[in-house]
Amino acid sequence: MKTIYLRSETKKGECRSPLTPQGAKILMAAGITVLVESSTTRTFSDQDYRDLGIEITTVPWQDMPTDVLILGLKELPVSDEPIAHDHIYFAHAFKGQDEAPQILARFNNGGGRIFDIEFLTDADNRRVAAFGYWAGFVGAGLGLLGYGHYQQQQTIFPAITPFANKESFIAAIQSQLGNNVNELSVMVMGALGRCGSGATDLLKAVGIDKLTLWDKQEYDESPKPITAILSQDVFINSVYLKGDIPPMIDQSLLADNSKLRIISDVSCDPNSANNPLPVYDAITNMKQPFVQAKYSEHHPVYVQAIDHLPTLLPKESSEEFAGALLLHLLQLGSENECSDVWQKAVDIFERIKCNG
């Protein structure tokens, strides 16, 4: 049996957890040791874990034996320090991101491996655990909040903090939009995927009637860049980037824009060479959720590109995600050899590490 160490998240504003207190209890009942690093920002408190008999520790993961599995969500602090532990997290290093060489070098130099959660897939190549639905839900809602804000003013959109639940999130959006909700036109690209379904559910819950829902067929049939986007007030990109695709929006498109006001890039790949929205070049954050798109001086367009959107609804998104991941943590923690799901993830890491 292995030991799984749930690390605290160092990314500012990140409140989610890949392991709930109840999930930790289930792992312990299966004979897997669980250690939880103390955190004041995690949506589940230290006491929530303690109440179920889970040990809380202040010892950093770097000081743990190297056979301990380190479980987290978002990126590690920037460093050149070699990593000897196996890590389960979203590394954002397998799709040619700018920071990928440094991340891979740390593991290569230390002997650790990345089990990238984004690449944990079943026999049908479907991801076994994903935040996609809640990313789409929150991304669509934040796009609407941005629209309401920038229709009234061009001052910087204020910092945003997590909401207690989805009901309070929806209420805040409806309050911000007021009567505009009846006239607002919104397009979702990738509407049939996890992100797209979450975005669509939010838009319907808020009361948006003028919805344009596109998926692969409509995307493939449309010339690029996609001029239909210019007929919308808000554009939500929920397409999972798998390879080289032509831009949906570019400089030439924005030059003719007189209506589009908000781009909510849920997929958020500005650092990829295949970025389908090359009108911004860096992720945004909770402190500054929106930036003005390049080439939009005559009619400002604002881009939301936070790469951990579901943390705005941390409890709901964590419970769904952790529930899906738990079965696979049980397998990994109790087996001497990796199951197919984990082995495929390791194989991807080894291939990319060697090619890099």
Score class of each variant (00 low, 15 high):
Pro314Glu: 05
Arg50Thr: 14
Asn274Phe: 14
Gly143Val: 07
Arg16Ser: 01
Met1Arg: 08
Lys95Ser: 09
Tyr133Gly: 07
Glu337Cys: 06
Lys74Phe: 01
Val186Cys: 08
Ser334Glu: 11
Val206Pro: 05
Gly136Met: 05
Thr41Asn: 08
Pro247Arg: 12
Trp134Glu: 01
Val138Gly: 05
Glu319Thr: 01
Phe290Ile: 12
Ile26Glu: 13
Asp80Trp: 10
Ile156Cys: 01
Val78Ala: 14
Ser264Lys: 01
Gln176Met: 13
Val291Ser: 03
Asn237Asp: 13
Ser264Asp: 11
Ala140Asp: 08
Ile348Gly: 02
Ala345Met: 09
Gly193Pro: 10
Val234Tyr: 07
Gln176Lys: 13
Ala100Asp: 09
Leu325Thr: 04
Val279Gln: 06
Gly198Ile: 06
Ala30Gly: 04
Asn271Arg: 04
Ser8Pro: 02
Ile208Glu: 03
Lys315Ala: 02
Leu202Pro: 02
Phe44Met: 05
Glu81Pro: 00
Leu202Gly: 01
Ala273Gly: 08
Phe94Asn: 02
Glu99Leu: 10
Ser175Arg: 14
Tyr89Val: 01
Thr43Ser: 01
Arg7Glu: 00
Val239Leu: 07
Gln217Ile: 12
Asn179Lys: 14
Phe321Met: 07
Asp48Gln: 12
Gly146Met: 03
Thr155Arg: 14
Asp46Ser: 09
Ser185Glu: 15
Asp46Gln: 03
Ala24His: 04
His149Lys: 09
Val291Lys: 08
Gly31Ala: 10
Asn108Ile: 06
